[in-house]
């Protein structure tokens, strides 16, 4: 059996995937979904996608998505894709807020992008809500000194 040329098989490399949601945001049919549950960010995607759209692949910042044109269906897997990545928990409130891989990449790149070593930057291990709380307390303390 053959399927139209335009069908393509989706391959995702979970080792390359950072756990961001660029592919899910890019899909015009919203067929790539994700949720955060039990300490993991779980992704689901169809095995096969109809159309000549390559938006998920183009959006992926880690080149983890590969689209393979389908001619023959023999030996193809139609099983939907699912993969998951461990979430990082905030060091203050213990709530999960992003993936461990995104934080690791952030720590590695901060030196090159803003000139801060991993030891100097203390915020990546905090969730956004705790970053705001810490910052506002710092500002209040500073305002008290300046009064």
């Amino acid at each position: 059996m053959t399927v139209p040329e335009l069908h393509q098989q989706i391959h995702v490399d979970p080792d390359r995937c950072l756990g961001c949601f660029a592919c899910a945001s890019a899909c015009p049919e919203q067929r790539i979904t994700w949720d955060d549950r039990e300490g993991n960010r779980r992704f689901r995607a169809p095995a096969v996608c109809a159309g000549d759209c390559t938006r998920c692949r183009d959006a992926c910042p880690a080149d983890a998505v590969r689209l393979e044109p389908m001619g023959e269906t023999a030996g193809r897997s139609w099983e939907p894709l699912s993969w998951s990545l461990p979430l990082a928990r905030c060091r203050r409130c213990r709530e999960p807020f992003t993936t461990q891989k995104i934080l690791a990449l952030l720590s590695r790149t901060l030196e090159a992008t803003v000139g801060l070593s991993a030891g100097e930057a203390d915020w990546p291990s905090c969730c956004p809500a705790c970053r705001r709380d810490l910052e506002s307390r710092r500002l209040l303390d500073a305002a008290r000194w300046n009064r």
């Binding site: 807020f97 952030l106 930057a121 970053r131």
Partner: peptide
């Protein structure tokens, strides 16, 4: 691309 990485980086 609405990937959300910027939010992880904001100090």
């Amino acid at each position: 691309t609405h990937c959300g990485l910027c939010a992880a980086a904001c100090p």
